[in-house]
């Protein structure tokens, strides 16, 4: 048990330590970018950016999970059966739509700031979860459902005690994919004024400061690894 939770725990400590103590690595960045006076991103603290980044992903993951799982359940019920082809198509086609395009469409409506990136993250994160919810629920052995119903379980009980537990692993894998993708996607939010770990990356690209880019990228990567190993442990 302890061994499973050790990697995410260590990664999380490393992530926090690097966010708080980035200046310690100043010599390294000076070596990477010798021609700049300032090599450590200081417009905001990394801890603040990290916290904001996580909040964005967390909110979008919660809303996305609830919506996608509810949608997947609805489409596999007798009442929602007619929508099943439509929903599965949305789930598969939707992912070919780039998140940047969602951002570009959302900004005119919602303005700059956190709102458009939140919308993009929710919409984009919804799809892998929806797809996996459908796959998980449809993958439940029909004889098991038939037996459950035939023995007198109510349809709601069949869903809660049989279908969801059996589909749970697949649904969780969908949430994992969704969250990992969204950690990377959230960084794009910096282009429309959201405060995320993408800030140093964008600033570095604009100013030609590779050290900034590196700092943002390392933290984003580390966050993604931490969360992914967290899911790994949960499974």
């Amino acid at each position: 048990m302890m061994r499973v939770w050790a990697p995410p725990f260590l990664l999380a400590i490393l992530l926090c330590a690097l966010s708080a103590g980035m200046p310690i690595l100043e010599p390294l960045y000076e070596w990477v970018q010798p021609d700049k006076q300032q090599v450590i991103y200081e417009r905001d603290s990394f801890l603040f950016l990290l916290q904001n980044h996580i909040t964005l992903v967390l909110i979008s993951a919660c809303i996305g999970t609830i919506t996608a799982v509810a949608g997947g359940i609805f489409a596999t019920r007798p009442a929602g059966r007619d929508f099943l082809p439509l929903v599965s198509q949305i789930a598969s086609i939707g992912q070919t739509f780039p998140p940047v395009a969602v951002l570009a469409l959302a900004v005119p409506v919602l303005g700059f700031g956190e709102a458009p990136i939140l919308v993009a993250l929710i919409l984009y994160g919804l799809l892998p979860i929806l797809r996996n919810t459908l796959a998980g629920l449809q993958g439940v052995d029909p004889t098991v459902k038939e037996a459950a119903l035939g023995m007198g379980m109510s349809p709601l009980r069949v869903l809660l005690q049989v279908e969801l537990p059996l589909a749970g692993r697949v649904i969780l894998a969908g949430i994992r994919t969704s969250v990992t993708i969204n950690i990377a996607t959230a960084a794009i939010g910096s282009t429309v004024g959201a405060r995320t770990l993408g800030d140093p990356v964008i600033a570095g690209l604009v100013n030609g400061n590779t050290a900034y880019v590196l700092q943002g990228a390392i933290l984003i990567g580390l966050l993604a690894l931490t969360v992914d190993s967290l899911f790994e442990a949960a499974e």
């Binding site: 052995d141 004889t143 098991v144 459902k145 038939e146 037996a147 459950a148 119903l149 035939g150 023995m151 007198g152 379980m153 109510s154 049989v162 537990p165 059996l166």
Partner: peptide
Amino acid sequence: PEKLRLNMGYVIQGTGLFPH
């Protein structure tokens, strides 16, 4: 229907046992 079925044992070919 649930009450009706609770009073009827049901056995099917694939057993339909809950794997979990």
